[in-house]
């Protein structure tokens, strides 16, 4: 289980008068079980990616604790093999000098997995809807959606217990989106993976998430089961739904 308790986070800002800190996250509490998908929906700039960086332990909260299976996430050894991530800024998260093959297999090498066969790589690429020929390409040769899918393949390669997906399907056309969402659903039930699914796409969230957390100004407005989405209480959540441009 991934658990966040009473977490605060602030960053320094360079105001004109004096240096002060701006609070980004205030008193965040959440839990995500294995086999569960928790959606985080909210205003742009409200601190979703910041929370994501805390969840995977690459930044530390000012106060509060984050644990995975009861152990502190700060501890790099605890994280290994348990948590992987697809960053919102997917382009700069792939080393520009790595081929797709190297980029995807990089985390596996790290864990000293025994046989890294070409088969695994080909299967991963096919699963995210790319032809196996893509393994020879370099990041600058990839379209936005292709780069994003390479990151997804890399994240699922290690079969982690939790994956943080930060706007991970935002650059994909709808048919590929559906394919990826279905893949994630399958992995979730097969390997009992848990997802933290950060998105602004309410419809995609409704498709995959079991619960959704509505986020504004660094605070949780409300957490609801997806099936209760029509009954959201907070005014912000209602406004989000009203402004949705549906097809």
């Amino acid at each position: 289980m991934l658990k966040v308790e009473n977490v605060d986070k602030s960053y320094k800002t360079h105001g004109f008068l004096k240096q002060h800190r701006r609070k980004i996250l205030t008193n965040i509490n959440l839990e995500c079980q294995r086999g569960e998908c928790l959606g985080i929906i909210g205003e742009s700039g409200s601190g979703k990616s910041t929370l994501g960086r805390l969840l995977i332990g690459i930044e530390q909260p000012d106060c509060g604790v984050i644990t995975i299976h009861g152990k502190q996430i700060r501890d790099r050894k605890q994280r290994k093999g348990h948590v992987s991530v697809v960053f919102q800024d997917y382009r700069s998260s792939i080393n520009p000098f790595y081929s797709v093959e190297k980029a995807i297999l990089e985390p596996l090498r790290d864990y000293k997995m025994k046989e890294i066969s070409d088969e695994l790589l080909d299967r991963l690429l096919l699963q995210v809807g790319l032809s196996p020929d893509y393994k020879y390409k370099y990041p600058y040769e990839l379209s936005g959606g292709e780069a994003q899918r390479v990151c997804i393949a890399r994240a699922i390669a290690t079969e982690p217990t939790f994956i943080l997906l930060d706007e991970a399907i935002s650059s994909l056309d709808v048919s590929v989106q559906l394919q990826i969402l279905d893949l994630l659903k399958t992995l979730k039930s097969e390997y009992n993976m848990g997802y933290i699914f950060i998105t602004h796409d309410l419809q995609a969230a409704a498709y995959i998430c079991d619960r959704m957390m509505i986020f504004k100004d660094g605070q949780v407005q409300e957490t609801i089961a997806t099936k209760n989405l029509p009954n959201v209480q907070s005014s912000y959540a209602r406004k989000l739904l009203q402004n949705l441009i549906t097809f």
């Binding site: 909210g42 919102q88 706007e167």
Partner: peptide, 8 residues
Amino acid sequence: TALDTISQ
């Protein structure tokens, strides 16, 4: 792509 429904 990266915008919540209101900003969008």
